[in-house]
Computed example of a mutant assay.
Amino acid sequence: MNFKLETNINEQQIKEAGGLIKDAQKILLVGHKNPDGDTIGCLTAMVAYLKSINKSYAAFSANELPVNLEYLKHSQEIGSDKNIFNHSFDLVICLDTADLKYSGVENELNRLKARGVKIVNIDHHPSNYGAINIVDDQASSTSVILYDILRIWQVVINKDMATSLLAGILVDTMNFMNSATNDKSLGLSAELLQRGAKFNIISRQLYQTKTQDGLKLWSRLLKRLKKNDTLNIAYSVILAEDIGEAGTEETEGMSNFLSNLAEARLSMVIKEIKDGEIRVSMRAIDEQVDVAEMARHFGGGGHKKAAGFTIKGRLEQEGEGWRIV
């Protein structure tokens, strides 16, 4: 190896994982539920790699992809139908998934494990549920880790893979604006640009694809913006009826947007979703706040600066605020 790794990962583990891929007949790629740019970037980059070595594979996300990530090459191959678990796999690779519950298919993955199917866990959250765990919780994104892995496997990273990986870095560093941004994430991004990553396309898809109806939905978010001075938390809510009336679910990026507030320790978007559930997305503004720890308390996951969880209930207005009932 004639290059310096960007992350603190074990080279021997990476070679072992490469051996498992070589020997596998059919591989299942799994990202975390409510997928973001990092998990989708990693999934699509891995699909490209498995295609290049003629491996049989399937890619799964428990929830459908956000529309603004569908531009990534191979994103259309990521399915959400749990019937895929009726197929025969002999290796699972989990990407950017803090634990099996965060995958949204914990029971299905545990059944595969019980049948002796090995799991390779590649992540930048503290996690150790795999037969092999390639983890660096100091890395800015899982995409950075995957870049190192692909280099050790001597993979030629083409422009589509570079775009996928750069998308993951940009999302998890909030376009190089949060504390996850460091010399490694910036240096690696420059390398990916040299390999043909389409920075302008990524930025436009992440930040410049709002429709008129989508902006009307955002207006409701801003209109309801509140601050709990006791807890120093800024929050807002999106109701199911808001989405129905707007005719769009363009809520991607709301949590990151509220994290621009300078007057709170953390921001929170509380959104009603289908089947009587509520999704809570949190972003840390104060560097001392660990929202992942808060999310895990409610069965969710994420990392220190961005995390979320889903609970049963609905939102009900109470005076000037809201409560979950």
Score class of each variant (00 low, 15 high):
residue 98 A to V: 11
residue 168 G to V: 02
residue 109 L to K: 06
residue 136 D to V: 00
residue 164 S to K: 01
residue 235 Y to C: 04
residue 65 L to M: 10
residue 46 M to Y: 07
residue 189 S to R: 01
residue 245 E to Q: 14
residue 37 G to H: 03
residue 80 S to H: 13
residue 150 L to E: 07
residue 86 N to E: 13
residue 274 K to G: 12
residue 262 A to D: 14
residue 261 L to F: 14
residue 254 M to K: 01
residue 282 M to L: 15
residue 154 Q to T: 10
residue 2 N to T: 11
residue 50 L to E: 06
residue 149 I to E: 02
residue 237 V to Y: 03
residue 60 F to V: 07
residue 166 L to Y: 06
residue 135 V to N: 00
residue 9 I to E: 02
residue 139 A to K: 00
residue 237 V to Q: 00
residue 13 Q to T: 02
residue 42 C to A: 11
residue 35 P to H: 03
residue 50 L to P: 03
residue 232 N to W: 05
residue 48 A to K: 14
residue 317 Q to H: 02
residue 155 V to E: 11
residue 153 W to D: 03
residue 240 A to D: 14
residue 118 K to R: 15
residue 68 N to I: 08
residue 211 T to W: 11
residue 203 S to Y: 11
residue 289 V to F: 09
residue 180 A to G: 09
residue 302 G to Q: 01
residue 202 I to R: 02
residue 25 Q to T: 13
residue 142 T to P: 01
residue 258 L to E: 02
residue 125 H to E: 10
residue 52 S to A: 12
residue 24 A to V: 03
residue 139 A to T: 01
residue 189 S to Q: 07
residue 110 N to E: 15
residue 182 N to K: 09
residue 258 L to R: 01
residue 28 L to C: 02
residue 33 K to P: 03
residue 296 R to D: 01
residue 77 E to F: 11
residue 127 S to N: 13
residue 312 K to Y: 06
residue 187 G to C: 05
residue 216 K to A: 10
residue 114 A to M: 13
residue 247 G to S: 12
residue 266 L to E: 08
residue 294 M to A: 14
residue 122 I to G: 04
residue 237 V to H: 03
residue 45 A to I: 02
residue 219 S to P: 06
residue 58 A to E: 12
residue 53 I to Y: 07
residue 249 E to V: 06
residue 78 I to N: 04
residue 266 L to K: 10
residue 19 G to I: 09
residue 12 Q to H: 13
residue 268 M to P: 01
residue 323 R to N: 12
residue 150 L to W: 09
residue 186 L to Q: 10
residue 164 S to C: 15
residue 55 K to I: 05
residue 215 L to S: 08
residue 185 S to K: 09
residue 8 N to Y: 10
residue 103 S to P: 01
residue 133 N to T: 11
residue 144 V to I: 15
residue 109 L to V: 09
residue 166 L to S: 01
residue 144 V to W: 00
residue 145 I to P: 00
residue 287 E to G: 06
residue 322 W to K: 08
residue 139 A to C: 08
residue 52 S to D: 12
residue 310 T to H: 04
residue 51 K to W: 08
residue 301 G to I: 03
residue 90 D to A: 07
residue 209 T to I: 08
residue 117 V to K: 04
residue 224 R to M: 09
residue 277 E to C: 10
residue 155 V to I: 11
residue 224 R to S: 05
residue 276 G to V: 03
residue 250 E to S: 04
residue 318 E to Y: 15
residue 220 R to V: 04
residue 111 R to I: 11
residue 189 S to C: 10
residue 223 K to R: 14
residue 71 Y to K: 07
residue 318 E to V: 15
